[in-house]
Computed example of a mutant assay.
Amino acid sequence: MLKVDDINVYYGSIHAIKGISFEVNQGEIVTLIGANGAGKSTTLNTISGLLHSKTGSISFMGEPLSKVPCHKVVSKGLALVPEGRRVFLQMTVQENLEMGAYTRSGKGVDEDLEKVYARFPRLKERFKQVAGTLSGGEQQMLAMGRALMSQPKLLMLDEPSMGLAPILVEQIFEIIQNLHKAGTTILLVEQNAQAALSVADRGYVLETGKIVTSGTGKELLASPAIKKAYLGG
């Protein structure tokens, strides 16, 4: 579904992503794990078209993305839930969700709104509330709901557990698993390696802009080197 081939990304003279290649197949949860600054968010931003690679290619559903402007990437079926949530703080919950459907014509939007409310009952309770007054966990749910409103074929999540209390982290990962069961393909970037590998079909480990190892979620969870570096074992 998604194929990333030999991308190199620079911030000025800083070589942030160094020739990485990976793929995501339909129906999978694939996770990118690594320490802060390893290049995980940069990779997602490059796939989304917010950053550009000097080399290589990115294709989605067999179609190259390199010349597609970032606002058009969403209408191709790729949605990013950005790091730090980035909800529209001055808008209500419902307005935020409606913004998620801006690439669609009116058909089916109300139906999908009800589906999002069914998946996130907390948002339904607060649909008239201004997003800036929600808790961190509620804002994360809103950011995910907003992305789902674009009817993504692939949902990219950037650090969904960041800054959340452990009980909320559990809830968010439960939601990720439920979305996956409902047929959404997911690319997950996460510093909480334990949680990410527990739900992932496959994982890639990034260190300073390079993929250093990959395997199934189970294999990586069981690997002594991964345990030592990322799981506090």
Rank of each mutant, 00 (worst) to 15 (best):
A118Y: 14
V30E: 04
G233P: 00
G27H: 06
P152H: 00
K128E: 15
P160Y: 04
E190R: 00
L197Y: 10
M156T: 01
I176E: 05
D6N: 13
G145H: 09
G217N: 03
G209H: 00
V212N: 08
Y10W: 10
A200L: 06
A225M: 11
E98I: 13
D6P: 00
L164S: 01
Y204P: 02
T208P: 02
R86G: 09
K210E: 14
V30P: 01
P121E: 09
L51A: 10
K124E: 11
E174S: 15
L187C: 07
G233T: 05
L168W: 08
R86N: 12
Q151W: 04
E170Y: 14
R126G: 07
L188H: 01
K218Q: 14
G137Y: 02
V73F: 09
P121H: 08
T31H: 02
L50M: 13
G12I: 15
S59D: 13
F60T: 00
S66F: 07
I29M: 03
I58T: 02
L78T: 06
G232D: 11
R146T: 06
Q151T: 05
Q94R: 14
E170N: 15
F60D: 09
V189R: 07
I17S: 10
Q194G: 10
K115D: 13
V130I: 15
Q90P: 03
K76R: 12
L148R: 02
G217I: 01
A16T: 08
G203Q: 07
S59R: 11
A193W: 02
K227Y: 09
V130E: 11
G27S: 04
A38H: 01
A101C: 11
Q151L: 11
N178A: 15
E83D: 10
R202M: 05
G49D: 12
S21M: 03
Q177C: 07
Q139S: 04
A200Q: 02
L51K: 13
P64G: 07
G215Q: 07
T31V: 13
A147W: 02
H180M: 11
N192S: 02
V212C: 11
G106P: 11
K228G: 06
V130N: 02
L206I: 12
